[in-house]
Design a protein around this nucleic acid. Sequence first.
DNA 1: ATCTAGGTAAACACTA
DNA 2: ATAGTGTTTACCTAGA
Length: 682
Amino acid sequence: MMVESASETIRSAPSGQNGVGSLSGQADGSGGGAGAAGTAGGGAGRDTAAGADSNGEMSPADLLHFQQQQALQVARQFLLQQASGLSSPGNNDSKQSASAVQVPVSVAMMSPQMLTPQQMQQILSPPQLQALLQQQQALMLQQLQEYYKKQQEQLHLQLLTQQQAGKQQPKEALGNKQLAFQQQLLQMQQLQQQHLLNLQRQGLVSLQPSQASGPLQTLPQAAVCPTDLPQLWKGEGAPGQPAEDSVKQEGLDLTGTATTATSFAAPPKVSPPLSHHTLPNGQPTVLTPRRDSSSHEETPGSHPLYGHGECKWPGCETLCEDLGQFIKHLNTEHALDDRSTAQCRVQMQVVQQLEIQLAKESERLQAMMAHLHMRPSEPKPFSQPLNPVPGSSSFSKVTISAADSFPDGLVHPPTSAAAPVTPLRPPGLGSASLHSGGPARRRSSDKFCSPISSELAQNHEFYKNADVRPPFTYASLIRQAILETPDRQLTLNEIYNWFTRMFAYFRRNTATWKNAVRHNLSLHKCFVRVENVKGAVWTVDEREYQKRRPPKMTGSPTLVKNMISGLSYGALNASYQAALAESSFPLLNSPGMLNPGSASSLLPLSHDDVGAPGEPLPSNGSSSPPRLSPPQYSHQVQVKEEPAEAEEDRRPGPALGPPNPSTTGPAEDRDLEEELPGEELS
DNA sequence: ATCTAGGTAAACACTA
DNA sequence: ATAGTGTTTACCTAGA
């Protein structure tokens, strides 16, 4: 209750100062006291500070785009996996016995449960969708062609029978009928042509007429009328026998079939990264190019259907030593035949469903975000729920451009070197949503979660744009802000700026969180105020910071669990995963989907660090690099550098130990050592 | 049930 | 006088 009311008040609270007094005047009186306080160098940078609430400047459109992208990223990955081979899910055993796999896989693909709930969740990026669409179009086209072909054949047959039967009939009659049939044939062909043209016009299909029509011949009975599709999926592939056959074949031997027809399937020079191998229907694979951005495995010399040494063809996990072998395998095992065609259709269906689900999930996401981050009282238009802007008036000033401010590298990606960096956007959301109830009490997450730095690194775009409360404590955030700077020191105002820049959430209710920030700075020993010529700056005493956290971690089963299973996906993970599980996002729960890098980062850490929020890296984190030196900081902070010295004097503080804002990597290491070694944490 | 950490609100002091 | 900074205190809540 309190919370709610509190938040309410906050919200309504005038962004400016809290009205002093009026309310219950607490007779604390004492208030003052605060010995040291006095000296507050205070003002220093204030002048410049003017724009405390500045935040990155992005156009609403950009933001929206961003958010959407983020939200969809995970989905995209999933989709990629799906598109490139659904098989994997759970059949390890299947590896050897492809036969056994085939059926299950295809079934699985069609199974509503399998497809729908879970996979669908994922969202696709526009480009991805595009690719998929193209693929589908191509397939559709093929099917159309097949259909037409079929029709033609039938007509021919009829014609023949007619001829035979009508031998006796007057020639005229026969002639008429023939004519009629031929006309029909013509119509069919024209229709076919038109379809092709239409598709091509739409840019959905980019094949040459010749190509398009050619393959047809090779598709014997696979003919499927578009309308049959549904059944196809439902019933395993093809209508009638063909389907059965194919299924059986699949189940049995992959080898047998091969050869089949056609040759065109084996382009002699596929050797190169062959971006295209022909689809079963002979059409160039449209989906091949598969957005490198997200696909980790796709390297220059790879093939979309080849990864981790095995064939990614749905249901086929045949191991191939190299690309060459794979290609050979592809051409023999997955040549154009009924089975391949059926599988392709299934995959197509899968993709379609995913798309549908994607749309639904997208919508849901929007709604969720809108619900979570937009107060009823707030006029925020649903359409742009995520836009950071809404909040505080100050916010609008945008002094700092997000663009320049965030070299993307933002936080030193902890250890995660190769980490796909794909932010699991939603994580933030997830956690937020979970805690959202008012003033998030993300304590737990704070404690046990992965390093804030990595978390942020992974999701910074998300937090930056989504009005989601970050699952970190003020202390850890402040620390992070400070450590991110080259000198590891920030003025209060800069800290404010960091908050607003990094989190859309802190672009509103400024009075509230700013007060909290100040409160935390003063309250925690780990934050050391250092005065310098130009004013006061805040630094972090890592030791103190570490101390204050309950070393508990080791014992915490949950934590350990999280670490292991979640691999430290960040504070969010736990909650996020839960959320995912709830919403049936299978993949997300699987480690694979998550950023492995983070995991690695954690491992090395000392137990407590791990457990600790902001953690580990941060400590040295800042270190990571001689910093990316975010422009913004640099210019703002520059002032401090000098002062730093002064500080040193002042603060024999343990913390910065070598208070040196050490600008160089080594120094950082040093810091790290000091901290991590662990000290007394335990 | 008790502690503790963290969040929020607010009073008050200082200083530019 | 005002606003930004700092410091404290009080009260709440959630988690251990």
